[in-house]
Amino acid sequence: MSEATPNQSLFEQIGGEAAVNAAVDIFYRKVLADHRINRFFDNVDMEQQAAKQKAFLTMAFGGPNNYTGADMRNAHARLVKMGLDDSHFDAVMEHLGGTLKELNVPDNLIEQVASIAESTRNDVLGR
């Protein structure tokens, strides 16, 4: 992790794209191994899915992305039909935090990431 300076964005403080790449491997493995939620990730090509996880993490890390709330709704609408609810959302939040801890990201940054991800809850769950 790079030295934090006041002008750095959250994304830069976490370590930018390199951090996303490191996190994706850990995060996606946690998600796929979790019986509470891995059914949502069946039937998708793994490489493609890993790319989407990268998009997810970049967004949660406050990095550059073009996603709108409507995009989040659309991306997860299929999953909501499959029964996606708060418990699944919580599980993903848990893995997000766990991944960052494993990468020794400081707690105050983890909190900021969690609050960005949390802010998408209603869109992801289609409410």
Partner: peptide
Amino acid sequence: AKRMAYLNGASL
């Protein structure tokens, strides 16, 4: 096998 290998620790 791809999924299993990945879950067993191989990186993508």
